[in-house]
């Protein structure tokens, strides 16, 4: 198990480096010019100096190596310094955004909490809704509950989040005026009233994402429960007189959760990607909005770093899913 984990970790490194190269070359091949907005009155030689100040004068492989060094060496050192008060990263250049001229990671750190509260909350709620629905649907297969549940999960799976989000805004934000339609990120929770206000503004984005996630996970849960309910060990458990509740909730549920847990882990990075759209609908200024602004502004270091962080999330959670599968299911042996 440990050797498997180590081997997978080692394999993840070339994967990530390859992905970063792909993103870098894609950005390199782009015709967009970060200096396109500089006024035409600026003389060409000054423009050339600005270009060099942005680090654009070097050939691409040198800039790529520099970015790799900044991402994997300077940034960790800087955070190490921040925590322990040391000064290893003194005089080293961090990844700097073209737009804001501040370190990319500082901007990202500002945006992470917004994304995490909305995305994390919605995923949690989605899972909490999906698992009971999956269990009941499978246990009472073809009942009215199952039929309706399957239909709703199909609908939830098919409706794009930008449509459900906008419809919720029209109904609850504009017509009924129950919830604010724009997520106010400057809002601080200080007392009970502001806490209620925070909950109110989170309701709609969280509902949209939770519905979407719950639809997918409940389908997996149902299929997995159905697989296990037909197994011989279930008949044995019933035959030896166990209560039905124990059979379903202990024996079947535990075994059915194994594939579902890996699906949940695999789905998490995709949720970050999907949240780009939802953040745009509700004007949450999280990571997704940051990415879109950076793309529009030709902010190459920001786009590169953000996209690469998404890639790290995907590779990381795939690894976690594989390891979880091995830990949870003793029948799976990695040699």
């Amino acid at each position: 198990m440990l050797t498997f984990a180590l081997r997978r970790l080692l394999l993840a490194i070339p994967t990530l480096i390859f992905i970063s190269l792909v993103i870098f070359l894609l950005l390199e091949a782009s015709p967009g010019d970060p200096l396109a907005d500089v006024p035409l009155t600026v003389p060409p030689e000054v423009k050339e100096r600005m270009r060099e100040a942005l680090g654009l004068g070097e050939p691409w492989h040198i800039r790529y190596a520099l970015w790799l060094k900044q991402f994997f060496w300077v940034e960790p050192l800087h955070w190490f310094d921040q925590i322990f008060g040391t000064s290893f990263s003194q005089g080293m250049q961090r990844v700097i955004s073209f737009q804001s001229r501040s370190p990319v990671f500082d901007v990202i750190a500002e945006r992470v909490p917004q994304t995490l509260t909305v995305v994390g909350m919605s995923y949690l709620i989605g899972v909490l809704i999906a698992i009971p629905i999956g269990i009941i649907s499978a246990y009472r297969q073809y009942s009215w509950f199952d039929q309706i549940g399957t239909f709703i999960s199909m609908v939830g799976f098919s409706l794009p989040t930008f449509f459900t989000g906008v419809v919720l805004i029209i109904i609850f934000g504009i017509k009924l005026q129950w919830f604010p339609s724009i997520y106010d990120t400057t809002h601080r929770v200080t007392d009970w009233d502001s806490f209620v206000q925070q909950i109110r503004q989170m309701v709609m984005p969280v509902t949209v994402l939770a519905l979407y996630n719950a639809a997918q996970i409940s389908r997996f849960m149902r299929a997995s429960m159905l697989d296990n309910l037909r197994q011989d060990y279930v008949r044995t458990a019933r035959a030896k007189g166990l209560a039905e509740r124990v059979v379903v909730l202990k024996h079947v549920l535990r075994n059915s959760l194994i594939p579902v847990v890996t699906v949940i882990a695999l789905g998490l990075p995709a949720v970050f990607g999907g949240a780009i759209v939802t953040e745009q609908v509700f004007k949450v200024n999280g990571l997704g909005q940051l990415l879109i602004l950076a793309i529009h502004g030709n902010d190459i270091p920001m786009v590169m770093t953000l996209t690469f962080i998404f890639a790290i999330l995907i590779v990381g959670f795939t690894l976690i899913a594989d390891l979880l599968y091995g830990i949870l299911d003793p029948r799976i042996r990695y040699e």
Binding site: I19, I23, A29, G273, L306, T318
Partner: peptide, 23 residues
Amino acid sequence: TELFLALPLLPLLLLMVTLFREP
């Protein structure tokens, strides 16, 4: 295939479309 599965697709799509739209 695994490499492609590890790519962050939506960000990359956004990137590809913005970068190559004009040319």
